[in-house]
């Protein structure tokens, strides 16, 4: 068992891609000052719409486009209820997560005519990069089996980091989150920025769902998000509002999952391999908390600056 072979790296990227897309959505919401816990439901909804659209149009890319639009519309419910009507974001998110589970199961029977799992040899999945990269050393075996959305996911992390730090609208979004009253007094339309952030998260979750249902596999099964949206929520809590940290947290999960698979093959009991991602989360949370304490105890000026940039 070689842990550092390209196939291992490929399986890490496959496992991470949907999570990192959803987490990026959660991060943008969190920057704008909205706690988005509905990632799981939106991801599942996106996966369902992607499969239905691909089934109806015969094109995976229409599936992706439909999933993005559907994700935005689904998130609009969260944004209207929480930003405009000031409902509790957690309560609405719980509702949206449950709705996605029930609604996709129901619509699956109505539209696709089956329950449980929908798959068909005619269902179009996303193409892989094998044709483009198959012969490139190192990159070929790692990225070759992936859909084009996988590199896009990681590119979006870089784009988000640049956007939040270097652009005017990024700065305003951070202002809306960190000090809404001050931002509003300077003429910033805080609500508009928050609406935008929640809907952007919807688009990203739609993309995540499309990658899960048309990239990782080519099928839809009830509840197939299987906690990936929750992992994304945890990644946002771990990484705060820093895109690279959130991406690193997602990658940690991907590594833990892929490593768990490998360790199972080497004789580790499945139950223990299952616990690996959660154990790693716990360890990471404890380490992050103690590192935070050390920083606070360290010295005033540095912390203040960091805190302004970060929280």
């Amino acid at each position: 068992m070689n842990v550092l072979d390209p196939a291992f790296a490929a399986s890490v990227l496959t496992a991470t891609a949907p999570v990192v897309l959803a987490a990026l959505g959660g991060l943008i919401c969190s920057v704008s000052g909205v706690f988005n816990m509905a990632l799981e439901g939106t991801l599942l909804w996106g996966a369902f719409v992607a499969v239905v659209a691909s089934h109806l149009t015969g094109s995976a890319w229409w599936g992706v486009a439909a999933a993005v639009v559907a994700g935005v519309l689904y998130s609009a419910v969260l944004s209207v209820l929480t930003v405009t009507l000031r409902a509790d974001a957690v309560v609405v998110a719980v509702g949206l997560n449950l709705l996605a589970l029930g609604l996709t199961a129901f619509l699956m029977r109505e539209i696709l005519g089956v329950g449980g799992t929908y798959t068909s040899p005619d269902l179009r999945g996303l193409p892989t990069l094998a044709a483009a990269l198959g012969r490139v050393p190192l990159l070929g075996p790692v990225l070759g089996p992936q859909s084009p959305l996988v590199p896009v996911a990681f590119a979006l992390v870089v784009a988000a980091a640049w956007w939040l730090r270097r652009t005017r609208s990024g700065l305003r979004l951070r202002g809306a989150g960190q000090h809404p009253e001050a931002a509003a007094s300077l003429g910033l339309r805080v609500a508009a920025y928050r609406h935008g952030a929640v809907m952007a998260a919807g688009a990203l979750c739609g993309l995540a769902g499309a990658q899960l249902a048309l990239g990782n596999v080519t099928l839809f099964s009830e509840g197939m998000s299987a906690g990936r949206g929750w992992v994304a929520v945890v990644a946002v809590m771990l990484g705060g509002v820093r895109p690279y940290r959130v991406a690193a947290a997602c990658l940690l999960f991907g590594v833990a999952e892929a490593l768990g698979f490998r360790l199972q093959g080497a004789g580790l009991p499945q139950q223990l391999a299952d616990a690996a991602p959660y154990l790693i989360t716990l360890v990471a949370l404890v380490l992050a908390a103690s590192a935070g304490r050390r920083r606070r105890a360290g010295g005033g000026v540095v912390i203040a600056r960091k805190d302004r940039g970060g929280r």
Binding site: A15, N216, V217, M224, A226, E257, G260
Partner: peptide, 22 residues
């Protein structure tokens, strides 16, 4: 190899990953 995770009876993505490993 076992699927496990939070939804072991309906997680085709993890099942596929395990099959690829085998």
């Amino acid at each position: 190899l076992y699927v496990g995770g939070s939804n072991p009876f309906s997680d085709p993505a993890r099942a596929k990953s395990q099959a690829q490993t085998l």
